[in-house]
């Protein structure tokens, strides 16, 4: 059998993609496809893990035991989802610990939203509603990603996450039907999280260099702007039910397009936060680095014990 040349392999690969045949770990794939996936999935995993921190800081202060249990379960899910995603990255030959080191060194990115502080209890509801809402919008699209392990991971994650957005919304309904203080707390959270939530979909299409290739490889199915628009369209009526005002004077329904128009996003802020200058970038990375460093002796101890046991068995 004569070895296929690269062009032929790439052609066959693209044919599989076009026929909606999933790519599995050991299948041949272009280096760039592999790299793109490793980057995207590990970013996604990091976002889940860093995302535990702003909400986690409210676990000890949750206002009642039911909310405490819900929040614990939700943040725990995020750890689980991070884990599923790191597992997907590992199927591509990337090492989990190495990708985590890239996060800690600042080489790898994560969703910029988690660099904003969660300062009141209303932020927890708002994160569930807006941030998880935006994430779900993205993730549902990824369930059809061409890479099998990622797509399957997303299906599992979407199933589990369906409660995340609901619990957030429910929590906000309670605040918005509560005292004026509670309502004001909810509005304040909305004011702070609306724009960062819209930024979660990433740069606009004309500024997103990798998008076209990702669409061709069916890693991505919808563009950033399409998903952002769907999110706005879905969220505005929900805000109306809550009686919250969206902090955008230009937000209005456009009969012609059948979508909501909204103001341009502050891309300076977006890039500053992505590049490390958000309100909490430093704290988030420090917290994760600390957890890893302080956990080192634990991981070593368990490994040492396992090795001793294995020796005893063979002895």
């Amino acid at each position: 059998m004569k070895p296929m040349d690269l062009q032929e392999l790439e052609k066959r690969f693209q044919e599989k993609i076009d026929k909606e045949i999933k790519i599995e770990p050991n299948d041949w794939m272009p280096d760039e496809y592999r790299k793109t996936l490793i980057r995207q999935i590990s970013q996604h995993a990091h976002s889940e893990i860093v995302g535990m921190l702003p909400e986690g800081n409210w676990i000890t202060r949750a206002p009642n035991l039911r909310r405490k249990a819900v929040l614990l379960a939700k943040v725990q899910d995020e750890a689980g989802h991070g884990l599923y995603l790191y597992s997907s990255v590992e199927t591509l030959g990337a090492d989990r610990e190495e990708t985590i080191d890239d996060l800690h060194s600042g080489k790898a990115k994560y969703s910029s939203i988690f660099n904003y502080p969660a300062v009141t209890w209303a932020d927890i509801g708002t994160i569930g509603w807006l941030v998880d809402g935006a994430a779900i919008m993205n993730q549902v699209a990824l369930c059809r990603c061409s890479y099998g392990p990622y797509a399957r991971g997303m299906v599992k994650i979407c199933k589990e996450e369906s409660f995340h957005q609901r619990q957030g919304f429910e929590s906000l309904v309670t605040l918005c039907n509560g005292t004026p203080t509670q309502k004001a707390m909810a509005q304040d959270a909305m004011n702070r999280f609306w724009w960062p939530a819209l930024m979660m979909f990433g740069p606009s299409d004309d500024e997103s260099p990798n998008s076209a290739q990702s669409m061709k490889w069916k890693i991505k199915r919808f563009s950033n702007d399409e998903l952002r628009q769907s999110f706005v369209d879905a969220t505005v009526p929900q805000a109306e039910i809550l009686g919250l005002t969206i902090p955008d004077p230009n937000l209005k329904w456009n009969e012609e397009t059948g979508h909501y128009d909204f103001s341009p996003i502050n891309w300076d802020e977006f890039w500053q936060v992505v590049n490390g200058n958000g309100p909490c970038n430093k704290e988030r990375i420090e917290a994760r680095t600390k957890a890893k460093e302080e956990g080192m002796w634990v991981r070593e101890a368990a490994m040492a014990y396992a090795e001793k046991r294995a020796l005893k068995k063979t002895a």
Partner: peptide, 13 residues
Amino acid sequence: GEWCGHGPILEED
């Protein structure tokens, strides 16, 4: 609950 997000490894978290 204070450990949540700070465990020595994800699995143990």
